[in-house]
């Protein structure tokens, strides 16, 4: 299988070439186009119960599509948001993704739902996080460009900019400054991540875009 992320960072999409026997699993409605030798089959996103849980709490769809081919073919996988995509390869390890960030993976990757804790909820990042484990490639997407930092100790991230992180990272909620500053700065609460480990962030947030849009709407 060859997969390449094209048109980073604003309209990233995955151009996949499948050889006979290859397959790729993608989020529902992620297929933009495909050659006629690709076959698509739909199945529950994990088991029935975990699919429902992920749908309700993880922002993922109830079903996923698996693309296979007998003769070889190509397809284009995309996401709803205009933004960046990135890929990491799992080798028996685990990664956490924010709800909605998952786009596609190799069929050997397991998708699960993890409790992110109240710190994450208060920090505006949601109560649950998506847990990807197993072996194989995982593609994830974001609104805005994706950038990452390797954290040794502590790092401060504004609400809505966190995309994914290593399981060795822990999340804490904090104020961005003093009480007055936190309140008036427009930053409010921030997520303080503690390493060591890697965090993926997005350079824009949907919340930021919404606030900007709302300020211009009448």
């Amino acid at each position: 299988m060859e997969a390449e992320i094209a048109d980073k960072p604003s309209f990233a999409h995955i151009r996949v070439k499948l050889d006979p026997g290859d397959s790729i699993v993608a989020e529902a409605d992620a297929m933009a186009s495909m050659s006629s030798d690709i076959e698509m089959s739909t199945r529950w996103n994990g088991g029935f119960c975990s699919a429902i849980l992920r749908r309700v709490f993880g922002g993922e769809s109830l079903f996923v599509n698996e693309f296979t081919t007998r003769t070889g073919g190509s397809l284009v996988i995309t996401q709803a948001l205009p933004g960046d995509m990135d890929c990491f390869e799992l080798d028996g390890n685990t990664m956490f993704l924010q709800p909605g960030a998952y786009i596609a993976c190799e069929p050997t990757v397991k998708l699960g739902l993890g409790w992110a804790g109240f710190a994450s909820l208060i920090g505006g990042e949601g109560l649950f996080r998506l847990k990807v484990s197993g072996t194989g490639k995982v593609w994830f997407g974001a609104y805005g460009g994706i950038f990452s930092r390797d954290i040794d100790e502590e790092y401060v991230i504004d609400t809505g900019h966190l995309v994914g992180y290593d399981p060795s990272i822990s999340l804490k909620v904090g104020m961005s400054g003093g009480i007055f500053s936190s309140f008036f700065s427009g930053e409010g609460l921030v997520t303080r991540v503690k390493g060591p480990g890697k965090v993926y962030m997005q350079s824009r947030s949907i919340g930021g875009l919404a606030a900007w849009t709302n300020a211009r709407m009448y």
Binding site: R149, E153, E154, Y155, V156, I157, D158, H161, S176, G177, G178, F180, S181, S182, F183, F184, S185, G186, E187, R192, M201, S203, S205, G208, A211
Partner: peptide, 16 residues
Amino acid sequence: PAAMASMTPNAHMKAG
């Protein structure tokens, strides 16, 4: 306001 995306913890923020 609200432009900060991330920072190291020793960056001190003050609104005014």
